[in-house]
Nucleic acid binder design. Sequence first.
DNA 1: TGCAGCGATGTAATCGATTGCAAGTGATGC
DNA 2: GCATCACTTGCAATCGATTACATCGCTGCA
Lengths: 343, 343
Amino acid sequence: MTTRFPRIGDVALAAGVSTATVSRVLSAPDRVSANTRVLVLKAIEETGYRVNHAARNLRRRQAGGIVVLVPNLANPFFSQILSGITFAMATSGHNVLIADTRKGPNAEHRILDYLHNNRADGLIVLDANLPEDVLSAGDTPNYHPPIVFACEWLDADPRPTVTIDNEAGARLAIRHLADLGHVRIGHLMGPSDNILTITRARGARAALAELGLPIRDDWFLDGDFSLASGAAAARAWLALDDRPTAVFCASDAMACGFIGELHHKGVRVPDEVSVVGFDDIEIAAHFVPSLTTVAQPRVLIGETAARKLLALIAQGRERESATDASEVLPVQLVARESSAPPR
Amino acid sequence: MTTRFPRIGDVALAAGVSTATVSRVLSAPDRVSANTRVLVLKAIEETGYRVNHAARNLRRRQAGGIVVLVPNLANPFFSQILSGITFAMATSGHNVLIADTRKGPNAEHRILDYLHNNRADGLIVLDANLPEDVLSAGDTPNYHPPIVFACEWLDADPRPTVTIDNEAGARLAIRHLADLGHVRIGHLMGPSDNILTITRARGARAALAELGLPIRDDWFLDGDFSLASGAAAARAWLALDDRPTAVFCASDAMACGFIGELHHKGVRVPDEVSVVGFDDIEIAAHFVPSLTTVAQPRVLIGETAARKLLALIAQGRERESATDASEVLPVQLVARESSAPPR
DNA sequence: TGCAGCGATGTAATCGATTGCAAGTGATGC
DNA sequence: GCATCACTTGCAATCGATTACATCGCTGCA
């Protein structure tokens, strides 16, 4: 507390140059001669100088950070995506703020705060099911920083997205079960208004149709991606008169909840019913039984979204505008113990 | 892009007052008369004004955010702690930056960046196993923002901590197993240099001693809190000539990995061995079998740590200094299927 | 009447870095 | 020998909000 932080002026003094030169060494080193550059760097070292980001951001008219909107931080599926994002952002010097859109009081208010209060230079949205007005580009468009959607997206929205091929993923799952010999295949879905739910269910239906297998509405169970909803679906499955011999779940969490609850009720997987998940979260390989699932390149999704956002931010500064909107990354089926031929 | 953001001056103009008054309405409303206050608020509404945080932070000589250092974001154990932290911080207007200390390239460098580069007004550290120098208070103490340790801590460090009673938690687990009739009890530990590993192992040893049960070094298995290390420990357990009939694992993740691997090898839990975990992560209740474990009040831990940090930050500004350092929160045993009387 | 005291408001300096513009230097070309 | 150009560097305005200090008007009391 006794000594102040060194300012850029202190460095300039120590190096015998102007503050402008010090600043250039920091943000445009090639605009400074090699000699003075080492001089300044030595002075920075000696004084222990650190840039004051508030001052830099003020002058540069930027926020210095981006915000990631996550529907549920507790879901381990997202953490690897975040990993990819922070990795890509670290090199650009942007802070990464993570906001859980569902948890905590007045979550919606917090998000609007991020959106409008120029706290962020850009947004990565992993939750497309936000209240209408929150993401509507219509009102006061100049107040909105650039947005990239990842994983989820809004259907007729022109903004860039980074997604996986959900229909293809669902097809992989259904075909895998069919290949094992299943002909009675059900699907445990996510929340009905969710784009992932829609596309995965569409893929599942399409695959069933192609294979000439029955598509029965009572075999399409409702869930919300959570463990608890998987358990609830297990009870619904047990209550069916005429049960499918295999269930494709739209998330690994639901698959785990489903299997866990069945186990409680004395039903064995895959002996009595095969289960396939979606996401390949870390525990999938360690579950009992280990979970057959559709794997997503999560780190890559995060990295790609981050890079896209950085490009948009840079564009905004140069007042250009042209980004090829969407990127669709591949998925992969990982076969494990939870799926087997029907009895 | 055409129109600039309204500045505080625009609001002042619209309300017919000075910028000082507008600023006061925003940050000290009672220093302004009720009349002008409504006038100013209306003007803010009309102009759509938002404070520029960079300018505010610059003038107030603060960073406007705190950083949370997490050892592994992918571990769902941490997300609820983060939930508590963000909740408490939202009301204070601080941004919350989350940094994974283990993942990504040059993680250490990133942390030092946070620490020294006045990006943060304070730190919450959930990972006490950082490189020595990173957290050493010795060098250039005035460069360090206040730090609160949560969950983990450094042993002879005077800085405030928010923890649980790890020894008591371990005792609960051991006693539970003993109550079920187990006399041959092992312990799967975390990384050897970790304070949680040390205290939990100490509690386990103490409980075994009190109960007059054998304490055998070959029954203390090595792990690192991860799923994979739990699986490895299962193989180690299988390789023992003389096995314990129950294993207390220092984390739920390891317990799941342990059980999963045993299942692969055809060993049933709890029939052939009972397992108790630690943490009570969400999946514990849904695992097969559901996991007996020691539950921590995670949201409370996060909230408490956040409040403590805010107090420290406020203190720093007033140049006082007096915070009662530590807070120890209670734990609770949750009995489920993975523990049962020995055969 | 005069003055202390208080509440409300305005004036202007300040936080610390960035950057447009201009000036200085030396090299190159004709 | 002079104009031109590239390259470095410095000067000083600027980003937008906060706040110490000054001012003003009013009340209440001696």
